[in-house]
């Protein structure tokens, strides 16, 4: 079996924690995008969900910061944040040591990763799960790419990491879904929070839809910081999803700039039949 589903979505904490501040029409479109993605994910009948995230100092710090990390636990706890602040109840999320081990062994044929028998989920994983797997019954394998603090893995290695995930999944018997989460341009948690470079976002998403590896990786971190803020570093997760899609083309089901959520809220899915 190989990957049965590949998608991307936003994860800003405001998406659940500050809902009343959003334009109602834009917010309803975002919810419709999540709902459509949830239905497509369920239709793919996955045995496990890989969620490629860009965690925010919940587990990793500058004393020991992996470029790539994969969870290896039977369960994970989240959110690490105050549940009242995020408006998501704290809970155990099921994992699978057996499936994680298969994934890690396979990825390690192509890329070096850290493995983690402990992992506290922050909003970067909990917000997508809240909308996509609200029953929390589907086992999850968390994957992290350092997108928070330089030095960070180059973009072409993020793409290759996605390819390594795909190669590993091709040797697994299980049906594996992958959702990558991150922002595009955004300046989260700073005085510029709410600023969104919509033109930059749409240009990036056009590259993602075409799964144009050269174009997707044709950014410097200096240019990303200048044009897309420090949150723009999280495009690494979207790029990894493109790599995992093996050349498939994608569709954007939602792009709504919502300043109170501090990002252009995105839902996109790769059409794996085009690979």
């Amino acid at each position: 079996m190989s990957l049965v589903f590949v998608g991307v979505c936003s994860h800003g904490p405001g998406i659940t924690g500050r809902t009343e501040r959003a334009d109602p029409v834009r917010y309803s479109r975002l919810l419709a995008g999540y709902s459509r993605m949830r239905a497509a994910l369920e239709k793919s009948s996955p045995d496990v969900l890989i969620i490629v995230a860009a965690e925010h100092f919940a587990n990793f710090f500058m004393n020991n910061m992996p470029s790539f990390a994969i969870g290896l636990a039977e369960s994970y706890e989240g959110p690490i944040e105050d549940p009242d602040w995020l408006r998501i109840a704290r809970r155990q999320v099921p994992g699978s040591v057996a499936m994680s081990r298969k994934l890690i062994d396979g990825v390690m044929q192509h890329a070096d990763v850290s493995y983690c028998e402990e992992w506290q989920f922050d909003h970067g994983i909990m917000v997508p799960l809240h909308h996509l797997t609200p029953s929390y019954e589907l086992p999850v394998i968390p994957v992290n790419i350092n997108c928070q603090c330089p030095p960070m893995t180059p973009l072409h290695r993020a793409y290759a990491f996605g390819q390594a995930i795909r190669a590993a999944c091709e040797n697994m018997a299980e049906r594996v879904a992958l959702v990558a989460t991150g922002g595009i341009s955004h300046w989260p948690c700073t005085p510029d929070s709410g600023k969104i470079n919509e033109a930059w976002d749409r240009n990036f998403l056009d590259r993602w839809v075409r799964n144009d590896r050269a174009a997707l990786t044709d950014y410097s971190d200096e240019a990303i910081y200048r044009d897309a803020g420090q949150g723009g570093y999280e495009i690494r997760t979207f790029i990894a999803a493109a790599g995992a899609a093996n050349g498939a083309r994608g569709e954007i089901w939602c792009y709504e700039p919502i300043p109170p959520f501090a990002c252009g809220c995105t839902v996109g899915v790769m059409d794996l039949s085009t690979a």
């Binding site: 100092f57 928070q148 989260p188 948690c189 700073t190 420090q230």
Partner: peptide
């Protein structure tokens, strides 16, 4: 201090 730390 990084905003992702400072926010929490």
């Amino acid at each position: 201090v990084n905003g992702q730390l400072l926010m929490y």
